[in-house]
Nucleic acid binder design. Sequence first.
DNA 1: TTGCTCACG
DNA 2: GACGTACGTGAGCAAA
Length: 956
Amino acid sequence: MPVTRELNEDSHLYLVDASGYIFRAFHALPPLTRKSDGLPVGAVSGFCNMLYKLLAESKEVTGNGKATHFACIFDASSKTFRNDLDPRYKAQRPPTPEDLAPQFPLVRRAAIAFGTPAVELDNYEADDLIAAYARIAEEKGAKVTIISSDKDLMQLVTDKVSMMDTMKDRHLSFEAVMDKFGVAPDRVTHVQALAGDSVDNVPGVPGIGLKTAAQLINEFGDLEALLKFSSEHVPDKKNKAHELLTFKRHENLVEFADDARISFKLVTLDDHTPVPVAIEEFGVCEPELEQLVPFLDEMEFRTITRRVVQALGDGAEPVATPASGEATIPVTETNNVFDTSQYTTLIKPDDLVEWMRRAQAVGVIGVDTETDGLDAIGANLVGVSLALGPNDACYIPLGHTGDGDLLGDGAPEQMDMKLALGILKPMLEDPTILKVGQNFKYDVNVFHRAGEKFLDEPIIPYPIDDTMLLSAALEAGQHNHGMDVLSELHFDHKPIPFKEVAGTGKKQITFDKVPVPEATKYAAEDADVTLRLWALLKPRLSAEGMATLYETIERPMVPVVAQMERAGIFVERETLSRLSGDFAQRMAQYEAEAYELAGREFNMGSPKQLGEILFGEMELPGGKKTKTGAWATGADALEDLAAEGHELPKILLGWRSLSKLKSTYTDALGECINAETGRVHTSFNLVGAQTGRLSSSDPNLQNIPIRTEEGRKIRAAFVAQEGNVLIAADYSQIELRLLAHIGNIDTLKDAFNNDLDIHAMTASEMFGVPIEGMDPMIRRKAKAINFGIIYGISAFGLARQLGIPRGEASEYIKAYNAKFPGILKYMDEMKAFAREKGYVETAFGRRIWMKGINGKGPERGFAERQAINAPLQGSAADIIKRAMVKMPAALEKSGLQAKMLLQVHDELIFEAPKAEAEKTIKLVKKIMETATFPVMDLSVPLLVEAEAAHSWNEAH
DNA sequence: TTGCTCACG
DNA sequence: GACGTACGTGAGCAAA
């Protein structure tokens, strides 16, 4: 029990922001469940460890560090007086995760068990109580340490009050606050009131972020002074009222003054909150073993129980722990030693049942599937591997078809598929067991289909984590995220290559033919590596601030995209083969004409032979070499020649486009039609692009032709099935809109807010021509420039794109920068940010690491353009992913049958019953247009155009 | 396997 | 003053 003790100048009060800690621990620490019944206790465990460490340390530290008073402060309920101030406050908070909710009462008990008061007060947040106690302690001359990393508490920092982040083992002092907010702690609330907070839904003033807010407060002193100045000094047409107040900022400060005042109240902690327990009651005492040990025991925390008993007790062994005799090395204690001889092959159902029991006890399991093919939709399940700890992995052969007695022991070679899946299913769907995979979308689909086939109902693994997605969230741009790369990088261990077990080239066999002993080594190792990667990467998520991105965008994509891959899209085989024939005929004509002109036959598909003919034999002028010294025969070069009146290049261009369409699309796509479903099932790579975009392969359905009439005929072969329509919904100008928002460029924002033709507006501004009756060529130039901006423009690139001299392009860029100075500022900021941090960020916090940003020459220029483009392309990717994640539930809630089939970067394709087309379009548009909500409200509207039709060609 | 070319956003 | 460049992908073919 805490003791009563007066506070004076020698006192030191520790205040633990317990509620804040729980949330952070929950996301940062590996999930942990109580062995006996699966009760989730990860946050409780983290809390106990933290308390123990804190109490032990503060005992040892002499002088100011030593705690004389100690208390854990909790939120009492989710509703507080702030909700009455503004109903928006924290209104968008997602519901508490299921496996976190039961831990709150346990953490309160933990605090009490450690002999520290657990304090809370209805209608107030923990932060308010902390503010009140800190004030009281300070008035008595005591020192205060607040255990939290919550920025909302930073306003309390003084020379007596400091903060400590135990997870990062870091003290936050006056300087750290200055660093974060750009103002002294006592001005923090003023800055927050202006900048707002999307996490807590504090409105703030639009267009003012932390940086601007800090500048303004430093200039005007406080919020009221600033608001007063803004309302009293109306700027005139030409002159701003103050150097820091752009017209837009000034306008917003006047218009949203009330929001700012409300925000100020929301962010200001009430340090006169009535305290439910007198501060003198917080006197530190030794925890009482009689109270603490039973609690720790009940939680089944063996390690910490032992520690506590050794530190505080008489050396006696702790109370006996459950006698399960588990020998599993905790997954968190990974090492780099791999021993494939420890892997086991599971043949007997009883052994599998025992593994399921252990999975239950450990609470997290590495899972990998082996199949007889590469695509998750066509391939069959061959085996499953599991891992529960380093070198503690097994393989369950299920569909091996090799001849003979595979193990040579006369035992049955493998378990019955149906029986094994029946045992695995409850574990895979058990909400208290976390399934960890590498590229788990593949395994999700394999399990889904195997369940349907053998158990008459799908197996839907949940909950899951994906090491590939973890790696991409943490290190996009640094390397790719295949298991081999990650294993070598993190463990300096090269897993057995697939080729080693399956062979290569013609002799390659499918996995079902691989002898079980080799299959066990290969497959179990994959599960082992995966689980070790998880133990390494998962805790880094929160530590590096990437948990929200991963949990709200990346991981939820797995089931959504898996469903899209299973759905596939119907493609008319007849249309494709008719086109193939048509193209072949016309190519033959082109070939005949080309041979005639060249004076001999040659391979038109060979750039080498082509170069020799054009620039060697025919001696056409202007030939350029590629970097390897070969003649360049790309479309640009051929077009130049054609423009000079040469016939052969024209023919080649025509032949090339047909050849491309035929080989890549009309021929290849027909081969991709799945025999069972009659549809084409692409594979989406969730980490295909470092910017966060998806990529599509086998076949790539994100590059189906559209720009030419011939190409569109291919798109017309993608159709809805009888009674359905395809719906194509695409974001209009999303990257330019994001440029307007992120770069905070008023002219662009106004244009989008007034629904103007953005390219015409640009042209009008730059060239001083009216929008009405504009020359299409002028608009085209402006459009090219707008695109160029997004790509990190250069005079060279623009000149090439528009076919104009470089000097002219240079003039355009100058004119552009003069008219839209904000964009130059955006570009400089991105470059500077990338140089300093080594990465850039998207709107939703995705990080893209830049290689070579601090290098020199071309390498650096490349990285700089990337730094300009990546936040825009990546933010657009964030947004459409958010829409995709929300979509299935929204459709279901509206009772609509529509299925999402494809994503093409800024476009989603659905198939829906004809009768529901109208309603589906309406809903899809709404979800896509509001995808940033409630976390973010862009300063420009997002516009989605959607249409329904029989074919993809007509729908787009 | 590498380079070239070209389909898409 | 020259360097080299538009950003992000995947696939098929030729040529080694």
